[in-house]
Design a protein around this nucleic acid. Structure first.
Length: 447
DNA sequence: TCGGCCCTCT
């Protein structure tokens, strides 16, 4: 354009900068900022606002503020952009200062501030602003519902959902996703069916959450139904999120062949789709395949993250691939990933399974991070596997301390005493349970 | 020509 047409003007730059925001292309944006000064259009309110938004989105809040302060004219959009910038940066104090300093506020500026509070878990402040907003729109509701969902309060989320009369796809999505992410997959599927009954067609976002819910339920029939629905819908099946969810759902519901064929037809596999497939192998006891696929992923140049290592270490521990597990654990440092309690739990499981109970116990006690119940649970399983009643007793007692309301731990402890013929201890533990009003939900099995 | 809401792998 500059060669064949001539000088760009203030209409040229906003879309250009917006592209940089979308891609988080910092250096390109910085270059364009220099260029627009050269063409003397930096005084335009649209140009300035777009720049504030760009720097805010790239988390260069100092730059955003500098541009904002130097603007000769600002409108409500410019003010909202700087509020959003501070929110993105996690600075709620300055976001609120700018919000209060705004000469004029509209729905969008309120929603931006509410979103900030909701995203960072300050639900009370979010709700206070929400209640102050006289004409709430569907975005206000969605933001607040998402906030409740992220805090696990699905009852409040549902209440607001009912209150909102103008239900659009994003609002449905916030509700369904909330249920799925809070481990309420049945409510997620039920809400999805409600949505279909209200003659609304889902988008990719909703289907990804629905598939995640189906994966949690693990119902083969439901997975079949949703998979078929996907195939005859007009959704973008090749979208990375969608494919990963499809693979995950099919793998978790036991349709490994379908999962594999979906996976191998992905033109460009990403970390999440790999993890879904590796996890699928792990669930179905195909540890060797999981390990192979992990190396495959590495050879494609995909950088594993902490979750990927959790997945592969779980695969190794479930399938008793001790050496491989060690190798992956050591590999983590090469990717600058500090092992979390999840990773340590896998290693404790691996050590325990291979009969190295002492080493597992030693590792557990010397963790640089707080050991969670799963880590102790892994050792308990190993103690039982190798019939070490003494260690099992120590571990089970610790578990009862860690999770005083988990009846399963009491039952395990009682079973350990029973196996050692210590019936007095059995009755003490059982009485303790009854005294605290705890009841274990009986397990069931087809086998 | 500028600003606000929803998604996958532990």
């Amino acid at each position: 354009m500059r060669v064949s047409y001539g000088a760009p003007d203030m209409y040229t730059f906003p879309p250009l900068i917006k592209c940089c925001s979308n891609e988080l292309a910092v250096s390109a944006g910085l270059g364009i900022h220099g260029l627009l000064i050269k063409y003397a259009v930096e005084d335009d309110v649209f140009v300035g606002t777009t720049l504030v938004d760009f720097y805010g989105k790239c988390e260069l809040i100092g730059n955003a503020r500098k541009v904002f302060d130097e603007m000769s004219v600002r409108n409500v959009v410019s003010w909202t952009a700087i509020v959003v910038g501070y929110v993105r940066f996690g600075d709620l104090v300055n976001a609120r200062i700018m919000f209060d300093a705004m000469p004029k506020r509209n729905q969008v500026s309120y929603n931006a501030m509410i979103c900030g509070y909701a995203k960072l878990g300050e639900l009370v402040s979010a709700r206070t602003l929400f209640d102050q907003l006289p004409n709430k729109n569907v975005v206000s509701y969605t933001t607040m519902i998402d906030g409740y969902a992220k805090c696990g309060d699905m009852a409040s989320a549902r209440f607001l959902f009912e209150e909102c009369l103008e239900k659009d796809l994003v609002l449905w999505s916030a509700l369904i996703t909330g249920y799925a992410q809070n481990g309420l997959p049945n409510d997620a599927v039920k809400s999805f069916q409600e949505m279909l009954l209200s003659n609304t067609s889902p988008d990719e976002y909703i289907m990804v959450s629905v598939m995640s819910a189906c994966a949690q339920i693990g119902s083969l029939d439901l997975a079949n139904e949703v998979d078929a629905y996907m195939s005859r819908s007009f959704l973008y099946l090749h979208h990375t999120h969608v494919v990963a969810a499809l693979v995950d759902m099919n793998a978790k519901c036991g349709r490994m062949e379908r999962a594999m064929s979906l996976f191998s037809n992905i033109p460009k596999r990403d970390l999440v789709s790999y993890c879904s497939m590796i996890q699928g192998f792990a669930i179905h006891g195909q540890g060797v395949d999981a390990v192979k696929l992990f190396y495959n992923m590495l050879s494609e140049g995909i950088m594993p993250d902490a979750v990927a290592f959790t997945v592969i270490l779980t695969a190794c521990s479930r399938c008793a691939l001790v050496e491989e597990g060690y190798r992956f654990f050591d590999m983590m440092s090469r990717y600058s990933i500090t092992p979390s309690s999840d990773h340590y739990a896998c290693m404790i499981d691996l050590l325990g399974r291979s009969g190295n109970l002492e080493a597992a116990y030693h590792l557990l006690k010397s963790l640089p991070v707080e050991a969670h119940a799963e880590a102790w649970g892994a050792l308990l399983g190993a103690s039982r596997l190798h019939c070490n009643t003494e260690l099992a007793e120590v571990v089970a007692n610790r578990l009862v301390e860690l999770e005083p309301h988990n009846a399963g731990n009491f039952v395990l402890l009682s079973n350990i005493y029973a196996a050692a013929d210590r019936w007095l201890d059995v009755s003490i533990v059982r009485n303790q349970m009854v005294g605290q009003g705890l009841r274990k939900i009986p397990g069931r099995s087809w086998c």
